[in-house]
Write a protein that binds this DNA or RNA. Structure first.
Lengths: 305, 305
DNA sequence: TATCTCTGTTAACTTAAACTCAACAGTGAG
DNA sequence: CTCACTGTTGAGTTTAAGTTAACAGAGATA
C-alpha cells in the first residue's frame, strides 16, 4: 500500500514538532520531508497537518491518522526488533546518553572496545548532565545515577555508586586530618550543586549514623571541576568513587573517613520498556556491566585499569 | 525505518503463498518481489522464508516477523481507511466477487453507472460460483445468496431473493398446468445442483405448507442454463426471480403457483469486519441497495428496467 | 527416469521515485 | 520594522525500485 513508506516521516514530524527537526533526525532535507507529507496528503485526499512556517498542528484527519500510523510504526519496529533479537547480529545505531563526568571517565573509554566486539553497531554518545526525554530525543540508553524512572522506562543497575569524602595530602598537612565526620563543620567543604541536599552528608559505621551539615565557599555542577580543586589542595569534597578512585589509588587524594560508608546512588541504565528489547541495547547493557565489574567496579578495586 | 516499505510485499507473499502470485496481486514482476524480500532479509540479518521453486514456508524468524508485520500493515490500512472515510473522496480499487448468474444479470450492469458516480474508484469484478475466501483472495465485497458468514465477516442484505417454479407457455400447453404443487411429481423438474436439498421444494400459502420431492432428467450448476432449457419448453424449474423476473414479465415464462411463496435466500454482500469500513466498500453497498430497489427489487416489480 | 511446467533468482538495463539545491514567501520574535 | 528560521516548490540529480531475459531448480506427469 502506497502510504506506508511515509509513515515514519509523518510520525517524525509530529514527534519533533516540525519539518526541519524531523528532517534532521531522519537524515533528509526539509524539502524532502515536505514533499513526502504533501504526497501522503494527496494520496489520502485529506490534509493531515495545519502548518505555517512557525506553527504546526494536526487536523482532525491527521489526529485519526496519527493514532493508527503510530501503531503501524510501533508494530513495524517490533517486527524488526524481534527478528534482529532472535537471530540477527546486533546492528544499527545506538544512541547513548550519559552524564558528563561518568560518561567522560568511564563510558567513552569503553565505546571503542564495544564497537570492536560488535562491528555492526554504531554509537552516538551524548554527554550531558541534563535529564533527557528518551522518547523525544530518540535515545536508546540513558545512564544515570540515583535513578528516577519514568513509568515506561526500565532501570537496570550497571554498577554501585559509592562516594567518599576526600582531600589532598597537601590539604590535610595544612588543615589537619579530621578524626570524625562532625569535624567537617570546621573545613571548607566543596559542594556538587546538582546533588539533592548537597550540603547534608550522611555517614555510617557499624551502628553509628550521623548527618553533618557542611558548607564551603565553592560549589560546582561538575564533579571533575571539584576534583581538580581538591588536587590543588583546595578544600574537601564528597566525590563519587568513580571519579576519585584512581586518584586515591595514586595517592593524590585521601579518603578522610575510610571506615565510614556513605549513601550511594547506584549507576543505572534507563531504556524504554518495550516488548522486544532491541538486541543492540541488550548487548550494550551486558557489555557495560561486565566492563565495569558489576558489584565491584574497577574504580573501587585495588587493580588499576 | 527502512523495512517498513517492504511489509506489504512480505505479507502478500505469505497471503498468496508464493512470489509469483503475490507479484500478480501487487502489480509487480516476480523478480521485483524477490529482490525486495531478499533486501528485507539482508536488512534484518535473518532469513524470513525457506523457499524452493515449489515450496514456501516461514522460518522461525519469519513467523515472528509476520505477526508484527501484519499488525503494522493492518494499522497502516486502518490509518488510511479512517482518513479516507472521514474526509476523502472514495477511491481505489474495489474487488467484487459475485455468482455467475446474479453477477452477469444484475451486478455487471450497475458497474458502469457506479463508476460514473465515483470516478476515483476502479472495479475488479470476479464472477464465480465457488465460495471465496475474502482474505486469501483480496476480495472487498462478495455477493452471496443465503449467507453463511464467517466469524469475521459482516453480511449486509442487498435484496430479497425470491424464487418461483416456472415453465414456458409451450410446456404448459403440452403437459398441462398443475393446479397444486403436489402434482409436480408428474413433471420433469430441472434442478440447480449448487442448491442445498435441490430436489426438496417448499411451498407456502396462507396456513398451508407443503414440501414436494421432485425429480427430473437435467440438472445444472448454472441457473441461466436452466432458464434457457425452460424457454425451449423443456421441463419446469425453480428459478430465482432475479433470473426469471424479466421473462415472466415478457410472458416467455409462467409462474406455475403465483399464490404460493417459497423460502427465499436473500442476497447479501459479505465483507471483512474491520474497525473502519473503507469508504469505497460502503458507497458500493449503498449504491447497490439503491440500484436494486431494496425490499422491492426491480426484477420483482412490474416496471421494466 | 525423462520431460515439462512453473517456480524463484539474478545480471543488465530502464524507469520512477526520492532526494538535494537554491530561491522564495511567510511568520513570529525581538 | 528587521531578522532568523520556518515550510514550499521548481529544476535537476541520485538512488532505489522495477523490468526484461536468461537460467537453475523442483515437483508433477507420463
Amino acid at each position: 500500500m502506497d502510504g506506508i513508506g511515509a509513515i515514519p516521516i509523518f510520525i517524525a514530524v509530529i514527534k519533533y514538532k516540525g519539518f526541519s527537526a524531523a528532517a534532521e533526525h531522519l537524515g533528509l532535507t526539509k524539502s524532502a520531508v515536505s514533499k513526502r507529507i504533501s504526497q501522503l496528503e494527496a494520496q489520502l485526499g485529506a490534509k493531515l497537518l495545519h502548518r505555517t512556517t512557525r506553527k504546526l498542528s494536526l487536523t482532525e484527519a491527521g489526529e485519526q491518522y496519527y493514532v493508527h500510523a503510530l501503531k503501524a510504526l510501533t508494530a513495524a519496529q517490533d517486527a524488526q526488533d524481534c527478528v534482529t533479537q532472535l537471530q540477527g547480529e546486533p546492528q544499527g545505531k545506538l544512541r547513548i546518553h550519559a552524564p558528563m563526568s561518568f560518561g567522560h571517565l568511564h563510558v567513552s573509554p569503553l565505546i571503542p572496545e564495544f564497537i570492536s566486539r560488535y562491528p555492526k553497531i554504531s554509537v552516538d554518545l551524548v554527554l550531558d548532565d541534563k535529564a533527557v526525554d528518551l522518547v523525544a530525543q530518540g535515545v536508546d540508553v540513558a545512564i544515570r545515577s540515583g535513578h528516577l524512572p519514568d513509568s515506561n522506562l526500565v532501570a537496570r543497575k550497571l554498577a554501585p555508586g559509592n562516594s567518599m569524602v576526600c582531600a589532598s595530602p597537601e590539604y590535610i598537612a595544612k588543615h589537619g586530618q579530621p578524626s570524625h565526620p562532625s569535624q567537617l563543620t570546621e573545613h571548607n567543604c566543596l559542594l556538587f550543586s546538582y546533588s539533592d541536599n548537597a550540603n547534608q552528608w550522611h555517614f555510617s559505621q557499624d551502628k553509628e549514623h550521623c548527618q553533618i551539615e557542611v558548607n564551603g565557599n565553592y560549589q560546582a555542577n561538575n564533579s571533575e571541576a571539584l576534583r581538580q580543586a581538591l588536587l590543588k589542595g583546595f578544600g574537601v569534597a564528597r566525590l563519587p568513587t568513580f571519579i576519585a578512585g584512581k586518584d586515591i589509588k595514586a595517592g593524590k587524594l585521601v579518603n578522610l573517613f575510610p571506615s565510614y560508608t556513605m549513601p550511594h546512588k547506584d549507576i543505572y541504565a534507563l531504556y524504554i520498556a518495550r516488548q522486544y528489547l532491541p538486541k543492540k541495547v541488550r548487548v550494550f547493557l551486558d557489555f557495560a556491566i561486565e566492563y565495569f565489574g558489576s558489584d565491584t567496579p574497577y574504580w573501587d578495586t585495588e587493580s588499576d585499569r
